[in-house]
Simulated scan of single mutants.
Amino acid sequence: MSIEMKEKIRVIIADDSDFVRDGMRIILQIDDDFDVIGCASNGREAIEIAKQIPPDVILMDIQMPEMDGIEATKHIVENNLGKVLILTTFDDDDLVQNALRSGAKGYLIKNHTPEHLKQMIKSVYYGTGVMEESILETLTKNSEIQISRFQEEGYTPREIDIIKAVAEGLSNKEIASKLYISEGTVKNYITTILAKEDLSHRTALAVYYLTGKKPN
């Protein structure tokens, strides 16, 4: 069932591959929930489109000519031009980490299904930072800092349950079902936890729990 929205989610697609851009544009344009307001082949073009027509979500490739996705994301976030969902093949784990530090709200693997793409965009649109499990596993595997570096002291057992569920990539609805609490309660817990760690979104919390590194 489609999520009810007053207006379509305005999306900009930034990728230097014509095939990727056109494919995602077609996938989104045939869905009444989305409006692709522009396509860009590099970060600079994405910024210019965002300045002209305010987007809700920008799908941003990392490696692009002229201006890469990391630099573009930093500019977009600093100037409140929209929320960024990173597209990645995570060839370089450091690039993903840098994009997170730049303020990206989510990470999407390019070999996604159309429905997964749409759901990830909606999650970012509604304020939920998202990261695919395989990317979290890669960050954990490649991290030089072990999981044990995450300090559990100062947290209640329920808060630890919430943190672990976030790190597993579960949505608020899935966490609520797993822990037999309401979605509102889950949201309140996550807000409190993020404030304790001075983190901006749940994706950063997941990375911190799994790798011991605070992205921001």
Rank of each mutant, 00 (worst) to 15 (best):
V20W: 09
G127P: 10
M120A: 09
A165W: 01
N98F: 04
G169N: 01
Y125V: 03
D22T: 12
E137M: 02
D16Q: 04
A40S: 14
I49F: 05
K118I: 04
G169S: 03
A165R: 07
N142W: 08
T128R: 11
A206I: 00
I162H: 05
D33K: 06
D61V: 11
R202C: 11
F34K: 01
M64N: 09
E133N: 02
G184D: 09
K74R: 15
I53G: 09
G23Y: 03
E71G: 07
A204N: 01
M1P: 13
I37S: 04
K8E: 05
L210G: 10
H112Q: 08
L100N: 02
I62K: 12
F150P: 15
A167W: 00
Y107A: 10
S17E: 06
D33C: 10
R10N: 13
E45A: 13
L117A: 05
E78R: 08
E7H: 13
G129T: 10
L108P: 05
A50R: 02
M24Q: 07
P55V: 10
D198Y: 01
Q63A: 12
V124K: 00
T113K: 10
I70N: 04
T140R: 15
R149C: 07
K6L: 08
R101D: 07
A195G: 03
S143A: 11
R101P: 00
I12T: 05
S200C: 12
G169T: 09
A14R: 03
L95S: 13
K6E: 15
E153H: 07
I53M: 13
S17M: 08
A46D: 13
I181Y: 02
T128C: 07
K105C: 09
Q146N: 12
E78H: 11
T140I: 00
H201P: 15
G212I: 01
R21N: 11
R149D: 11
S134Y: 00
I37L: 02
H112G: 02
E137I: 08
L210M: 11
F90P: 06
Y125G: 09
T113C: 01
K213D: 12
I70V: 13
I162A: 08
N172K: 10
L210D: 06
E144T: 15
K178C: 02
D33I: 10
E144Q: 08
D31L: 03
L194W: 02
F150L: 02
G23Q: 10
D32I: 00
Q29N: 15
I62P: 15
N111C: 05
E78V: 02
I13L: 08
D35L: 13
V166I: 15
I76F: 01
Y155D: 10
D92Y: 00
N79A: 10
I121C: 03
E174M: 07
Q146T: 14
I3Y: 04
P114T: 07
F150S: 08
Y209M: 10
P157S: 14
D94L: 11
K105A: 06
V77I: 14
N188G: 14
G127A: 13
C39H: 05
M5I: 12
I190Q: 04
K187W: 04
G23E: 10
R21W: 03
I12F: 08
S200L: 12
I9Y: 05
N172R: 12
N42S: 08
V207E: 14
P157V: 06
T211V: 01
I109T: 10
P54S: 15
D18W: 06
K213S: 05
R101C: 06
R202Y: 02
I181D: 14
T128H: 09
T156S: 15
V20E: 07
